[in-house]
Design a binder for these strands. Sequence first.
DNA 1: TTTAGCACTCCAACTTTCCGAGTGCTAAGC
DNA 2: GCTTAGCACTCGGAAAGTTGGAGTGCTAAA
Lengths: 359, 359
Amino acid sequence: MELSERKQKILRAVVEEYIASAEPVGSKTVLRRSGLACSPATVRSELADLDREGYLEQPHTSAGRVPTAKGYRLYVNELMRERELTHEETEAITSKLRGNSVRPETLMEEIGHMATELTSYPALTISSPTKATVKRFDLIYLDPNSFIIVLLLSSDGVKNKLVRLPFSFTENTIKRLSAVFNSSFTGIPEEQITPELINSTERAVGDTMGLTSVIAGFVIETLTTSHSGGANVSGEANLLKLPEFKDPDKAHKLINYLSDSKNLRALTGQGEYGDVRVLIGPENAALELRDSSVVLASYNAGDGMRGLIGVVGPTRMDYSAVAAKLGFIAEGLSRLLGGGSAPPSGFGKLMIKGDDRDV
Amino acid sequence: MELSERKQKILRAVVEEYIASAEPVGSKTVLRRSGLACSPATVRSELADLDREGYLEQPHTSAGRVPTAKGYRLYVNELMRERELTHEETEAITSKLRGNSVRPETLMEEIGHMATELTSYPALTISSPTKATVKRFDLIYLDPNSFIIVLLLSSDGVKNKLVRLPFSFTENTIKRLSAVFNSSFTGIPEEQITPELINSTERAVGDTMGLTSVIAGFVIETLTTSHSGGANVSGEANLLKLPEFKDPDKAHKLINYLSDSKNLRALTGQGEYGDVRVLIGPENAALELRDSSVVLASYNAGDGMRGLIGVVGPTRMDYSAVAAKLGFIAEGLSRLLGGGSAPPSGFGKLMIKGDDRDV
DNA sequence: TTTAGCACTCCAACTTTCCGAGTGCTAAGC
DNA sequence: GCTTAGCACTCGGAAAGTTGGAGTGCTAAA
């Protein structure tokens, strides 16, 4: 059922006013904000309708109206005006991305901080799990007791480890190991590194000291840990400034929930990069997020990997500004990390996608 | 001036009761807790004395007593009974340290989590800055446009970078570069890597493509970033459960302060590893910490580096348990990271050191 | 020096009062 | 039929008032 234009205007006014003030919105305020040419009484009857239809609700009789999740949903899907970023904002983001000399360990953390700063909500970043393989294998001989393992992964990440052992070996052994590993452990996914493969490699090299299994162990560890993507949060303290979290216990529960990266990874969903997903209150699967909203933008992290950057806040969130900012960051990240691959058409136009589940 | 034994017992009872209950402590409660054989009236007059001498204070007339910073200080220095860790606690710590396959990137973070869990206060870890040098230098040739730089640092950390350039070079060039760098860039601190050195290296190799400066740039970056030690916090949300942080604003300020690693690094002080430092309320230099306490244990991170692990909490903190736990963790870490070097005598006996500044 | 007794203080929790913003309803007007 | 002015009503929340109990300091006697 379609809402009349006037109802839409009123709903928009209520949502935007509530987002700004966190106070229930009354008929007079709606009038002031929407600029409609009618009386408060008319607005009141319209408000009562929107209330009946489930878009608004009253904290108690004789209070103003507050949007419901359904109301926010309609607002986000149809009523929200696209927020243009100011030049300062785009500049801040692009310069940050450019300026960063791409130290992959800290990049996502810094991006998270930037998102927090820009939106003043806690920000989270999630790197999708990858099916990495080893692209190139090297051992660097140091001395009779130690060598370095260097792995170049299919994602172009480089991992290494210094191995120091209580017995000695020759440079030649290391060279031979390096060659054998380079031919038999490259290009295969983690699950194909079976005990049999390790055994046969061991025999092929004539290794009697267990070097092979040490090295294979590192390969497996590297592939599995790079497999489960990383996740982090920043700016949790910002929640405390919001009136909806004046109860420390509420804040505590949410922050706790966010601080477990397992929970964050559960937010990973399907969707093309370029999407901005908005999950409003009860649309969230997790109980702890049921009266908060999450906005997630996904980016192309190169090599077919997707990553997410998002923020968490009260349902009363400035969706349009947040979505625009996150979308822009994700776009920049895709350019930075995604390499040559062209972004999907419409990238940057910001496609807001909601959850498909019934509410 | 020495306190009479009875006064000491009373002070201890007040501190310990207040730590446990967070409520001002009255004369009857002191009596119950201390087991002294006298009447409440006697205790009252003693309390009044301790009040006059600055060890205790009253939130208001006709309330019980609360320890002052001076009171806590005396308690920590002289009155506190050493807390023995239970077998479960020591077991939890040692097994965690043993179980950890020492992935240096995440080790300190995990240790921080452990400290939070054990003490239920926010935990922080700080790795001291190092003067690292390059111990060994390698370039791995991949294809005409790319190679990997591998640096073995004096701290035995290994750093690497994949370099991909828009022009091509031969495997031989890379080999030559590797040899030259390995001889001229190893063993020297960052400040000796001057433009002159880079220029002369460039000439020596006959490099006209700028490869030398790319590589030198990475070396410098690595040495300077490993130079400024890392810091991190975990478990900030735990503050919210404490009555002293029921005001979200207070919690917000403190959490914000802690989330800036610059501020954390400012906590680094002198002292041998093996020390446990306790900073009580106003003893803290930072304004934001003035009504909180910080307990810091330092550990030997090997190679002459020191690291800190600590927790932040209200002045009403269970100092003896916290100090014991942190001390034990630091001890374990020292053994894990500090390698062969023997711990200073008395390690594990837990030397509590206060701040030397006047209060 | 200790202790019992007592008057006094003051917070915290609970009620009560009061105000105003905002509603829904009704009846008149366009 | 939609809109609007008028009006009685509701309800939360701030302000003010009330009460009880825990705890104190002082005094005088043991």
